[in-house]
Nucleic acid binder design. Structure first.
Lengths: 104, 104
DNA sequence: TTCATATATCGAACTATATCGATATGCTAT
DNA sequence: ATAGCATATCGATATAGTTCGATATATGAA
């Protein structure tokens, strides 16, 4: 994904927080027993933590996904979101190369 | 300066480009002889390169300055802008710590 | 099939950002 | 003083982003 799209996705404070929260599963309530072996966090928990409406968080998550920062997987009625670590790392490398004077 | 303000300043593609352009003085026309020992680039050159109106670039530069990404110095009727390398580096460190899973 | 739950999409209202031209300020030279 | 530049600020308009509630879709259970 391109740098500009990603910066845009991260330029909203709640979306940025979501990416940070997702670093650590313990930022959210424990998964239900039947989801014990799913990776990621269901969107309901993210919504609850963010304190915004369900529709807002749904569209935020799809924006983060479009930017490549998260992946999602649907299991039954739940959608689980998790960070795309490789994409995040690649973005950090790209932005560092672009911005820092001593690089490139 | 805080991370959120900086991300916002960088979330405009022209502002981001300006910061990148300022890495290398040769992205701009040579300084006038009487400005030979000024650091930075006068805003007129930045405007010319960006191709936006003078007022737009002026406010972009003041936004970048407020975010701490550039410093400015006025000499006579000219204002010279240059990158604040320390601030840019500090921002990169902060955002890497915040975003990357293996940090902090 | 019908109901409840989780998530997604739609439409609207409000706020913020981008961007311009016009005007103001400040400096330099005449 | 005044005229001419470089830059800054102001006011306006258009576009984009935020955020919500309402509605749609998909799934699982009764």
């Amino acid at each position: 994904m391109n740098t500009e799209t990603i910066i845009n996705a991260l330029s909203n404070p709640i979306r940025l927080k979501i990416i940070v929260w997702l670093k650590d599963r313990s930022n959210f309530p424990p998964a239900l027993p039947e989801h014990a072996n799913e990776e990621g966090v269901c969107i309901g928990y993210i919504q609850e933590k963010a304190g915004l409406s369900q529709s807002t968080i749904s569209s935020y998550m799809s924006k983060l996904k479009q930017a490549g920062l998260v992946d999602s997987e649907r299991h039954g009625q739940w959608t689980f979101y998790r960070r795309n670590e490789a994409a995040i790392q690649a973005f950090m490398d790209a932005i560092a190369t672009e911005l820092l004077a001593n690089k490139k």
